[in-house]
Design a protein around this nucleic acid. Structure first.
Lengths: 109, 109
DNA sequence: GGAAAATTCAACCATTCGGTTGACTATCTT
DNA sequence: AAGATAGTCAACCGAATGGTTGAATTTTCC
C-alpha cells in the first residue's frame, strides 16, 4: 500500500501549480481563493488542484463561514523523502557539488 | 528551469513500474529486457518507460551489441530530495514516529 | 546467408490530466 | 429580501499517459 501512496504523492508533486500552492501554505493557512490568486487559473481549476493535494494527504481543510481554509500536512512529504533517501548512497559523493550548482542557478536568475 | 526539472522527475517517479526499474538498476546495469521481465508488460511498453526515465535524466544507456544497457543516474533524485528537504522543518518532530510506522508496515507484510 | 534475439517505431486505444465555462449552493453583507 | 462572495459540480475540450500489436532494424549465432 505504501507503493500506491508514493504514486499519488509524486503525482501530486509533479505539477508546478500544486507545488506553488504548497509553498504558499508553508506560510500559513490559506483559502482556495488565496491559493488560486498567484496563478492565472480559474476558481474551479484551483479547486481541482486542491482536491488532488487533499487526495494525496498533503493538505487538510476546515470550513470557516463560506471559505475553506487549507493547511499543510507534511506526512506524505516525509514518506516521499524517506523513499528518496534510499538512494542517498548513489549520490552523496556529488551532493555538495549539486547544492552549489543549484545555488548558483538561483542567484543567476 | 529547475521547476520544470522537478515536474519531469516527480512525474517519472509517480509510476510503480518505473520506480521498480530504478530499484532494479540499483543492483547494477540492466538491459531493457531484464528491466521488463519482473513486470507483466510488453517489450515496447518497457521501452517507453525507459524512455521516460531517460528523459528525466534518471538513467543513461550504452549499446552493447544488440542490447541496450541502462545504468542509474542519481542526480535528479538528489535534486528532488533537495526540494523535499525544504519541508523538513514541518515534519521533523514526527519523523521518528513515521519511520517506525513504515518499518512496522514493512514487517507486517 | 538465414534464422533468432533485442529493440524500436508507428499506429491505435481507453483513461487521465489540466484546463475551461456555466449553473448551482451556501454564506455574508447591506 | 437582495446582492455579492466563496466555492463546488458537471460537462466539455485537447493533450498526454500507459498500454497494446505488428512491422522494421540491428546484431548475433549457426
Amino acid at each position: 500500500m505504501v507503493e500506491q501512496e508514493l504514486d499519488i504523492t509524486f503525482h501530486a508533486l509533479a505539477d508546478p501549480t500544486r507545488r506553488g500552492m504548497l509553498a504558499s501554505l508553508a506560510l500559513g493557512e490559506k483559502s482556495i481563493g488565496e491559493l488560486a490568486q498567484p496563478f492565472a487559473i480559474s476558481f474551479a481549476g484551483a479547486s481541482k488542484h486542491v482536491k488532488v493535494l487533499e487526495g494525496a494527504g498533503l493538505i487538510a481543510r476546515r470550513k470557516v463561514g463560506r471559505t475553506q481554509l487549507c493547511r499543510l500536512r507534511p506526512e506524505p512529504l516525509a514518506r516521499a523523502d524517506l523513499w528518496l533517501r534510499q538512494w542517498e548512497k548513489f549520490w552523496t559523493i556529488r551532493l555538495d557539488r549539486l547544492e552549489a550548482l543549484i545555488e548558483a542557478e538561483k542567484s543567476r536568475q
